[in-house]
């Protein structure tokens, strides 16, 4: 069975070093927080101006002036800090975040990311902080299903959707396998339910596999 979104979030969380400063994108990447135990001391950044973000606010904790980048109410942890938008994005662009985890429509073999606009007729483009995050964090992890609903691969030789960033993705965590984007090609570093031969048959991207 391919990993479900929670299992995938747990798999991403395994690779986040204790003490890292991390930004989790809107949507599925938010689930990664559920798998980061407090004792490893990961500090979450939200681009609307906070470090030390805690879990979603519930009941009396809901404060309209304390939300995450998805505009969902959150809480603050001891040691939290607030700052304005220009500082928040300077933090991102300046390479101070260790990891960001983003969703994607497509990732190319050279680490190009497309996650903001499908370019479909009638769509209203909205980029938010995606382009800043993509080029800013030291490591950019993408979390996505390997195949679209129509069965087409989302790890592709060249992105067909409008780009968010060029050559910016470090790793791609999918429900079938984990891929590292390297100068030598796309390396399979973990696979769950699918053999490398099956992956090669379904992807148009050449795969590098370490011989152990």
């Amino acid at each position: 069975m391919p990993l479900n979104p929670d299992q995938l979030a747990a798999r991403v969380a395994q690779d986040i070093e204790p003490g890292s400063f991390v930004n989790l994108g809107i949507g599925q990447p938010t689930k990664v927080a559920d798998h980061l135990p407090a004792e490893i001391g990961v500090v979450l950044h939200t681009e609307n101006g906070m470090l030390g973000m805690g879990p979603a606010g519930v009941g009396d904790e809901v404060d309209p002036e304390l939300t995450n980048a998805g505009k969902v109410p959150v809480t603050e942890l001891p040691g939290a800090a607030y700052f304005h938008h220009a500082d928040s994005f300077a933090m991102m662009r300046g390479g101070h975040l260790d990891v960001c985890v983003l969703g994607a429509f497509q990732v190319s073999a050279s680490g190009d990311l497309a996650n903001w606009d499908t370019g479909a007729p009638g769509s209203i483009p909205a980029v938010g902080g995606a382009m800043d995050l993509a080029i800013g964090a030291k490591r950019v992890y993408v979390m996505m299903t390997l195949f679209a609903k129509d069965g087409s691969p989302k790890l592709v030789p060249t992105c067909t959707y409008p780009l968010t960033g060029v050559g910016c993705v470090s790793r791609v965590y999918t429900d079938h396998a984990v891929f590292e984007i390297t100068p030598d090609g796309v390396r399979v570093i973990d696979s769950f339910d699918t053999s490398v031969e099956e992956l090669r048959a379904r992807l148009e991207v050449p795969l590098v596999v370490d011989v152990h």
């Binding site: 220009a86 994005f89 662009r93 209203i124 980029v127 902080g129 995606a130 382009m131 800013g136």
Partner: peptide, 22 residues
């Protein structure tokens, strides 16, 4: 309004929006 063509839109990456004002 956008779909009816009654408003113009310029999409700016969020950090650029902040930094351009800074």
């Amino acid at each position: 309004l956008y779909r009816r063509g009654e408003i113009e839109l310029e999409v700016v990456p969020q950090g650029n929006l902040a930094e351009r004002m800074r």
